[in-house]
Nucleic acid binder design. Sequence first.
DNA 1: CGTCCGGCTGAATACGTATGCATGGGCATC
DNA 2: GATGCCCATGCATACGTATTCAGCCGGACG
Lengths: 357, 357
Amino acid sequence: MVMLSAPAVPEVPQHVSKAKATSIDIAHLAGVSQATVSRALRGSPLVSEETRERIRAAAEQLNYKVDKNASNLRLQHSGTLALLLFEDPTTDGSNINPFFHSLLGSITRACAQQGYDLLISFQQFSTDWHADYADSKKADGIILLGYGDYHAYRARLEKLVAIGTRFVRWGAVQPDQPGVSVGCDKFSGGQAVARHFIEQGCRRIAFLGDASSHYPEFFERYRGYADALAQAGLPADEALQVDAESTQLSGHRAMTGLIARGAAFDAVFAASDLIAIGAMRALAEHGYKVPADVPVAGFDDIPMASFASPPLTTVLQDTRRAGEVLVDSLLKMIRGEPAQSVMLPVKLMVRQSSVRP
Amino acid sequence: MVMLSAPAVPEVPQHVSKAKATSIDIAHLAGVSQATVSRALRGSPLVSEETRERIRAAAEQLNYKVDKNASNLRLQHSGTLALLLFEDPTTDGSNINPFFHSLLGSITRACAQQGYDLLISFQQFSTDWHADYADSKKADGIILLGYGDYHAYRARLEKLVAIGTRFVRWGAVQPDQPGVSVGCDKFSGGQAVARHFIEQGCRRIAFLGDASSHYPEFFERYRGYADALAQAGLPADEALQVDAESTQLSGHRAMTGLIARGAAFDAVFAASDLIAIGAMRALAEHGYKVPADVPVAGFDDIPMASFASPPLTTVLQDTRRAGEVLVDSLLKMIRGEPAQSVMLPVKLMVRQSSVRP
DNA sequence: CGTCCGGCTGAATACGTATGCATGGGCATC
DNA sequence: GATGCCCATGCATACGTATTCAGCCGGACG
């Protein structure tokens, strides 16, 4: 429990002790003008190697670092991207959606690799988010992450486009959307899961998750599921679809509800891994064995999925790639190059939860 | 797959279409001086309500936002904190340590609550991190997160203190440390786990994790464990301690090694949940039942812990509180108030993995 | 020997905001 | 009616950097 103290530091001359050094101080020390200091440190070919070295030494001696605020002001860009994470306010309050965590990691890495800083912010739906960051020049562009009803903030996206704000969005890629989106091919993912069940002879596959077009994240998964059923000549029984949002609690509720109302089902496809895990718990509580009685699959392949019991079959979204693509697209837009929406492939990860012994 | 397009926007006058508006534009439009615009928007009592309202309307009309770079330059602070996450380069390359994820979430929230932005950056150990952020005024202070050998960068911390950089560190609170640290009371946590085992009659409790004082994160846990053994009059058998870093793979290896060398143990205390999960897998592979044959406990209470099979007994670090304390301490330092290192209490979470039937 | 050119450097300015100081107008006081 | 005061606003400047333009020096060439 030590208090902060400031021991003497021999190598730093005392005339810099408190006030941070500026380029003018460096210029003075190196016997050149401020202009030359700026040029030297930015690597301009106009300055001779000898002078540059002298300046570099002086800068080091005074612990000088370029003031980003001044630099950004002058250059009119910030070398920073902003990540806005929209959290569904109906969440159980605990943690961030694990899938976003994974995406966050890869975005951070991608930014670092491109030499950009990353500003992150968790937004409540209500706040006036479009106001910030990019418009105030804290960031050169923004990345929008978040489930939810995108119709609700579609107007805002359109305004962003109109103002000329650079942004990319993670989520469903749809033809009429404002701006650039990057998403995974959840339709194919939904198909793959349904086919996987159908191949095992399942005919009454329950779907846990909102299936309304207002929630494109889940809707695409549902459409893929429905499409696979149709292709196999199976009916899509509405009684087998239960709304749920992406939490364990919600998954547990949905599954319990389905069981309670006596629905006949022989497989469960949850629209997200969290829902699946909640559902598996509910199934266990009601005496169902997974996968012997009911095979189950989820979606996202969050780290928890492989540690669920039994390990959960799910659909892997390549978050590493996703982060890179998001950042690359945004940087393209910032550089004024054209950027297009991108749909990434997904991969079915078959584990024990979906394979009947 | 839509290209970015810029539809006409009726409500925005065309003379602002491209160039962002400045406070001078607003001043012009509202018929006042730039100074008054600045005062009005910052809520200065010097400007009359009537004028303020007129200015606010003009600002809205032109989509004006204060340029943070210019503002920060003038004010000499940034309203931003930087979070530096040090990753052990020996990690299995996949994801961020889940415990940090949780901390990250709470730090973000705490920042938002205090009106600060958060800049995050994953650092490789090699990079010249002390150079950035705070010194370049991109951030008013920095938060350091990361396991690892803190002796290795102790010199850097001392330099930070000397330069006058504001920072807080998450990690072991030790009397001789430079700067302010916030950490959990891992010593007590280690004690609690060991006592929990001892109460059940275990006498040969293995410890998986580095027990060297060079890794204070784990060392404290080990000390607590050793202390509880001593208090119970049990010998501390060095053969029961195996080095491991905080990954599943490493935990698996350590456990396998312990079994291979024929060590006699009747409980396993893993220094982190990831290690514990890897160890449980190894135990299962060798035919041990958890907890019937060998009770197991971990540390951290990452989300995965309660979904392991069986659910893992572990030690909860209150990350929510930790994030708040980190941010609060840092803000205190920024405001020039004294700040002290803080040690937070922990809580033993008993689940199935450690309780013999 | 004069001229010109190329290679470096310095002086001056702009980026957009916030604030100390000065100012003007209105009102009360004597 | 002159003085004083307060309130609201404008003027001018500083924050620290990056860049344009102008200048200087030395050498090559005519």
